[in-house]
């Protein structure tokens, strides 16, 4: 049993810089979260959906419907994209937030961020070169394999090199790889953390208009509909200890 007031689950404070296995987290009981893991097992941001203004509710509803079809990435690119997105935010099981589909929708609509590095191509070209590059690197390291065909440990090793700008290949050499990591990761993260399932995982209060937030602290920082964080406790043992 872990005490949430202590920070010893945080990667920077642990040897190797990696977090504990998610088994310390409680089983999700209420809202959906990616991989059904999270810190707020009894929280569902949709419980307050009727308090959202119509414009916001519509945008969130449209986001929830994005899945399954691709307009920008080719069928050949999709497995590599999916594998990269899974590794980048550790989505190793269902339910998954449809990160590849959300990125595809954004790129197909041309919703770019408003800047392009002078030593980089357009973001859309950067994505195509990145996916090609991941397959080129994989083919060289693991004879004949494509990135999506690797086991997750090998995929993570490639992405670890990507994050440290240590990949070379014909496609990657046409990019500034440090910036490429930033372009791809920021789009992946914007997709993942725009999704209400991710808000359930992290206990974020979600849209708040016209309701607003009242409990700013110090008496409490939790609205009545928000739930406290929890860990994987055995309720029987907790009760027994309480009695003792």
């Amino acid at each position: 049993m872990r005490d949430l007031s202590k920070p010893d689950h945080l990667p920077n404070l642990r040897e190797g810089g990696q977090p504990p296995e998610p088994s310390w987290l409680p089983r999700q009981r209420r809202g959906i979260t990616p991989q059904m893991i999270g810190r707020y097992p009894d929280y569902d941001v949709f419980d307050t959906a009727e308090t959202w203004d119509p414009a916001t509710a519509r945008v969130i509803a449209e986001r929830m419907e994005v899945r399954g079809s691709f307009a920008f990435f080719t069928p050949d690119e999709q497995p590599t994209l999916r594998a990269l997105c899974d590794v980048a935010v550790a989505q190793d099981a269902e339910p998954r937030i449809p990160v590849p589909e959300l990125i595809d929708e954004k790129l197909a609509a041309g919703r770019l961020d408003g800047y392009q590095y002078a030593d980089m191509p357009d973001d859309r070209e950067t994505w195509r070169l990145t996916l090609a590059g991941l397959d080129e690197v994989t083919a060289e390291r693991h004879d004949g394999y494509r990135f999506a065909g690797l086991d997750s440990r090998s995929q993570e090793a490639v992405v670890e090199n990507f994050s440290k700008a240590q990949l070379r290949s014909a496609s990657f050499d046409r990019l500034n790889i440090t910036r490429t990591w930033s372009v791809c990761m920021r789009m992946i993260l914007a997709a993942f953390y725009s999704h209400p399932w991710a808000w359930n995982e992290i206990g974020f209060g979600g849209p708040a208009y016209p309701r607003g937030f009242m409990r700013l602290g110090p008496t409490s920082t939790r609205e009545p509909f928000e739930r406290p964080g929890a860990t994987d406790e055995d309720p029987v043992r907790t009760v027994t200890e309480g009695r003792a």
């Binding site: 977090p19 590794v87 980048a88 935010v89 995982e201």
Partner: peptide, 10 residues
């Protein structure tokens, strides 16, 4: 990134 990022996010 990956699992470490998810932990910090949670």
């Amino acid at each position: 990134w990956g699992r470490a990022l998810r932990e910090y996010m949670r």
